[in-house]
Amino acid sequence: MRRLAHSTRVTGGWGDHLFRLLIRAAALILLVIVLGLVIVMIRAAFPSIRAFGWSFLFTSRWDPVAEKFGALPLIYGTIVSSVLALLIAVPLGIGAAVYLSEVAPPWISPPISFLIELLAAVPSVVYGLWGIFILAPWLRTQVQPALGATLGFLPLFQGPPYGVGMLAAGLILAIMVVPFIIAVSREVLLAVPNAQREAALALGATRWETTRLAVLRYARSGLMGAVLLGLGRSLGETMAVTMVIGNRPEISASLFAPGYTMASMIANEFAEATSDLYLSALIEVGLLLFVVTVIVNALARLLVWSVGGAVKAVRE
């Protein structure tokens, strides 16, 4: 081995050296980009951080004219819409993943998985388009009146049915993250060794008992990772949410009411931010979003890696 290395140095010495430098530099650029991103964002957000301090996180007045900025309604809207989305998407997504990897006959799984993979590639703006013209009108005319009539005693389902609003945002997010949760969960489930399934089956477990006893328990941290990856996605999801959430920085108990998320606030107002402080406040919102998604994603990756084999699916 050493002789080999030596001989290559004789023939291609400086060529190899240069090439090594080149590929190393290419890789280092990624480091520069990430560090640059962090530094640039912190610097640009600094005026706002200095002006508002912690009150930025805990006050709800967003007033560009008076240059008073509090991001609480955005934080609230981001969390509520994402939690709503996960409440819908997680049971369905994991259920579907279990169906595809454990229950479905072998011929049915590949075409459905293929369809789901394709749908994961549909861009956000197209989901948004569908949300505006199909989902929101359907919510306004059918779902919300029905919910209001039956569950209207809950504050969650009170108020006029606009169609657009928190409910629409949660639903569209659920539809968008579901293919993703299925894809990652399926990889996680496929990474469960068959010996585990056989152990349960040989004990006289039914298929569902095998899934519960041997598969889901074994894969639970990986599935948790899949859920967190889904959360990371929905927190940062921009276009579709912007198109259906109603874009009003208010906190309301009702899911029918319009809201705002951090990402959609940036999307709507960034290009029109007239003053430096306004721009800085928007960048601080972006910084906040960045920090939260990095934490969520890092956690998710650790969890999915712990199951192993699913690393490939986590790439996104």
Binding site: P193, A195, Q196, E198, A199, A200, L201, A202, L203, G204, A205, T206, L213, A214, R217, Y218, R220
Partner: peptide
């Protein structure tokens, strides 16, 4: 078949205890 496997137990080539239990 589930009932059959209650009556006829099995031990595999590689030990496969449930690691989460």
């Amino acid at each position: 078949p589930v009932q059959v496997r209650r009556r006829v137990g099995m031990v595999f080539q590689k030990p496969n205890p449930f690691p989460t239990m």
